[in-house]
């Protein structure tokens, strides 16, 4: 564990708490993509299969995995049931097959071992890299967003961004590289570039998140 990964994980935790806070206080999931949230459930379920196979990394690792699975399922429940009337499926129209199918094919091609758990692990890494697309698509379509929704997206972007210095650190301290995670992680972080530009130049200056026309 190093400071980059720790703060990355904390940013990831923060993003979930921000999202829960937004939904609970506004009693609305307006502007939140159910599809992105469902993809995260798929990501966690397929990546954390090792939980059920007796692989033990650390108490921290297990606790976080259980939290990510539990909280992502809870968020789906909130959107689908508790606040379903505030969810607008007509805005959330990104076709998830375009993300699921290529991620699965990439998982079949690029993996560390051709076994179910390893292919699923790779699939989850590729899927996570692009899972934010439906959420960004809603932003794109509406052209604006509540500040709290943008804080959620920013925390998610910071999370994966911080993993990059973590990998550089691990390369020098342990001599190990995880090429699949690194390539997907760089792509994932890159997808936030446009968003971050608007976020840092507008939202953090106290202005509304509005995309240029």
């Amino acid at each position: 564990m190093n400071i980059f990964r720790l703060f990355g994980d904390l940013a990831h935790l923060a993003s979930i708490f921000i999202l829960l806070h937004k939904v609970q206080t506004s009693r609305s999931c307006r502007g939140i993509s159910f599809k992105t949230q469902a993809l995260y459930v798929a990501v966690f379920m397929t990546r954390y299969l090792d939980l059920f196979l007796g692989t033990w990394v650390s108490f921290y690792n297990t606790l976080m995995k259980l939290f990510f699975i539990g909280s992502s399922c809870y968020i789906l429940y909130l959107i689908r049931f508790q606040f379903r009337t505030t969810y607008d499926p007509n805005l959330d129209t990104f076709r998830v097959e375009y993300l699921l199918v290529p991620s699965f094919i990439l998982g079949l091609i690029f993996n560390y071992e051709f076994t179910l758990t390893e292919v699923m692990w790779s699939f989850s890494i590729f899927l996570e890299a692009v899972a934010i697309f439906p959420q960004l698509f809603i932003l794109q379509r509406t052209g604006e967003a509540e500040a709290i929704t943008t804080h959620y997206i920013a925390a998610l972007g910071i999370y994966r961004g911080l993993y990059i210095p973590n990998w550089i650190y691990r390369y020098y301290s342990e001599g190990s590289v995880d090429p699949i995670a690194v390539v997907a992680g760089i792509v994932q972080t890159g997808l936030y570039a446009d968003f971050f530009y608007v976020y840092f130049t507008k939202v953090l200056q106290g202005q509304r998140f509005e995309l240029p026309a």
Partner: peptide, 10 residues
């Protein structure tokens, strides 16, 4: 060790 390491990250 390169290239494989057990998945110890989240």
């Amino acid at each position: 060790p390169y290239p494989y390491r057990p998945h110890d990250e989240l």
